[in-house]
């Protein structure tokens, strides 16, 4: 096989003053792979996600991304223009709160179309058709295309946010608690949708979640974080069926069975 990792993370640490955000994290993410980062609030998973997605500069360590031209680039050394271009074309970022990732005062169609216009698409009809197609793929009625996300339910907003991110066919999507504030039934629908899209598009994804069921359903591999450190990682099935570390065992044993 000639495939190479999409993302190479080498010994990344982030300190807030003397406090540890995350420490000595290393891993590789391969094309088509979904990695779940789990842990309780304050465990450093969101800090790590921010460091990986260039929203925060790591205090030390290196994050390299395999660009479409086949070269690895150190994200921290990339020019801001290039980094921002990467973030709105080859990457996606799905926020826990859809209002953070959407423009709440422009229509659903324009929310989806914005990335297309940002990369130079100047044909209204095509942009609108693509937006309509993506709304359908995330199960939003096409006749809502001119409505603002303010008029959408939480689940619809989250699905719209996903469409907005995927419209440029990114290769890597970061998700921060994508099912965070949603009802269980809405969560199930969203999870199934994300699972299908990740599968169909061959996306790589890094998903931060505290919900082990989300990790089980979506991810191939998971990392368990505690106090800023990755304490256990491996195949998702293995970590959940045969947890080794005391904290992981506690997490797994705390899952509510219905």
């Amino acid at each position: 096989m000639t495939t190479v990792p999409l993302l190479k993370v080498n010994d990344v640490s982030k300190f807030y003053g003397s406090r540890i955000g995350c420490q000595n994290v290393s891993f590789e993410l391969w094309p088509g792979e979904v990695l779940a980062i789990v842990g309780e609030s304050g465990s450093g998973k969101t800090t790590l996600l921010s460091c990986l997605s260039t929203r925060l500069m790591p205090t030390s360590g290196k994050v390299e991304y395999h660009m479409r031209d086949g070269q690895y680039r150190d994200l921290a050394r990339m020019a801001e223009a290039e980094r921002r271009f990467l973030m709105r074309t080859d990457w996606g970022f799905v926020h826990q709160n859809p209002a953070d990732g959407l423009r709440m005062t422009v229509s659903a169609g324009a929310n989806v179309g914005e990335r297309l216009m940002a990369v130079g698409d100047r044909h209204y009809g095509n942009i609108r058709a693509t937006a309509a197609d993506w709304l359908r793929r995330v199960e939003i009625e096409e006749d809502r295309i001119d409505d603002q996300p303010r008029a959408f339910s939480g689940g619809m907003r989250q699905r719209l946010q996903i469409a907005r991110n995927l419209v440029t066919a990114p290769r890597l999507v970061f998700m921060d608690e994508p099912t965070g504030g949603l009802d269980v039934s809405v969560q199930a629908r969203l999870l199934d949708l994300v699972r299908g899209l990740v599968h169909d598009l061959g996306l790589s994804a890094i998903i931060v979640t505290h919900d082990l069921a989300v990790a089980r359903l979506l991810s191939h591999r998971m990392m368990v974080m505690k106090d800023g450190l990755v304490i256990e990682q491996g195949l998702t099935d293995r970590v959940l069926d045969d947890p080794r570390e005391p904290y992981t065992q506690l997490l797994v044993s705390s899952i509510l069975q219905v």
Binding site: G234, L235, D237, R238, D241, D242, R244
Partner: peptide, 9 residues
């Protein structure tokens, strides 16, 4: 069986 399938370490 679970070890063979990778679910158990």
């Amino acid at each position: 069986l679970k070890m063979l399938y990778g679910n158990y370490g």
